[in-house]
Design a protein around this nucleic acid. Structure first.
Lengths: 216, 216
DNA sequence: TAAAAAATTTAGATTAGTCTAAATATTTTA
DNA sequence: TAAAATATTTAGACTAATCTAAATTTTTTA
């Protein structure tokens, strides 16, 4: 078994790997709010355990074993988030911190039964895919609302920014997962966008349009 | 916030306090599978934090603050056990270890919503009372089956031994919480007891009769 | 392409929790 | 009630994870 800290490092490396193939010490330090020196120490330990490929000064990648652990933690995180929202009536902006704790509960039996209990959901409350008990999942293809042209429509299916502030903003604007939207106007000057959402018009900034994702 | 370890010490002290008013270093060491020297170190720390009353060589008691924490952990433990059995179909002998992990999830909001979700159960799968969100609970009065005389009956409402082995044995014998039993015979020689349970007779040893509890 | 800047690693400490072995206090018992 | 037995604490050490400051390597840039 691995410690919570090791699991958090693996998860951070996994997420960072989705952006750039190799992950740097400083990137990890920033994402975990810790210092580069601490990261170096942990990287040695994880390399020792065969969970990452690490060469001094050259950044890291996960090994198959490391990736498997990372994915299992992400599975737990997203399943718990789904549970919190669907069964316990938490809001989508309230679940992250609790799921950060729950994801470290070790019992695989527990997660698999929880998955059964909820009917094997495919996506979490933020639209992120939930790996199955074998670690398999399909990333559905998404693109920012900002890439749409006038009169194009789509279904809100994910967010690029998972911050509480952004989620609360979307909630307030009724821009939530599953909603059908249509671009009715794009402002040439500031690239802000006006959307038709159900029977309302919603005006969003370019920044919001970049962080709000629709299914392709 | 307190560490998992501190929480485990407080919980252990709480449980031991139910037997004897003051709890000794060795009792704690035994119950946590650790060494007396380690316990002494932790007792100093907990006393420092105002969670226990500790005088060298004199044993410890919980302060009101310490007891409050202990009870909140027990609440979480028992609610999770109930959830695991009632919602996820775990057996009553399978839930302890998972609940030992889940009880340290800190969110009070989570526990209270879980409690709502399950309809505020009063007892966990082993018949132990679940404290409410204010830490209040009533210990229902219980006595061992061994105290019954011939023709007395009662309802199985708890166990004194929570070990997997004992729980599995009871399960196999269909001696589970809520079952109505009647003593039909007591063996003078070994004090073993024959019970009428529904339409079956079950023969149990004195030891089992001592660890199986019925409501008074 | 050599100096400057940035990134990374190493060295040496610190804190939490644990341990063993030795010292001390309390309790038992003869 | 004094010796023996038992319980508890102290001293000193270890591991995991972290930090700061200094040293080293890599990258950038002029």
């Amino acid at each position: 078994m691995n410690t919570f800290t090791e699991e958090n490092y693996l998860k951070a490396i996994y997420h960072l790997s989705l952006q750039s193939s190799s992950v740097s010490t400083n990137q990890i330090a920033a994402s975990l709010n810790t210092k580069a020196a601490s990261v170096t120490d942990m990287l040695k330990k994880l390399a020792e355990k065969g969970l990452i490929n690490y060469t001094k000064y050259q950044g890291v990648t996960l090994t198959a074993a490391g990736e498997k652990i990372a994915v299992s933690i992400i599975r737990k995180h997203r399943l718990w988030e789904y549970f919190l929202v669907e069964k316990l009536n938490f809001k989508w902006d309230e679940v992250h911190d609790v799921a950060e704790e729950l994801e470290h509960i070790s019992s695989k039996e527990l997660v698999d039964r929880l998955d059964d209990f909820m009917g094997h959901p495919k996506y979490d409350p933020h639209g992120d895919p939930i790996p199955d008990s074998n670690g398999l999942f399909k990333t559905h293809e998404l693109k920012p609302v900002a890439t749409l042209v006038i009169n194009e429509n789509g279904i809100i299916s994910g967010v690029r920014d998972h911050s509480t502030a952004f989620l609360q903003y979307l909630e307030r604007m009724q821009l939530t997962i599953g909603k059908k939207i249509k671009v009715t106007e794009i402002n040439d000057y500031d690239h802000s966008v006006i959307l038709q959402v159900e029977d309302k018009k919603v005006h969003i900034s370019r920044e919001v349009a970049n962080n709000l994702l629709i299914a392709i």
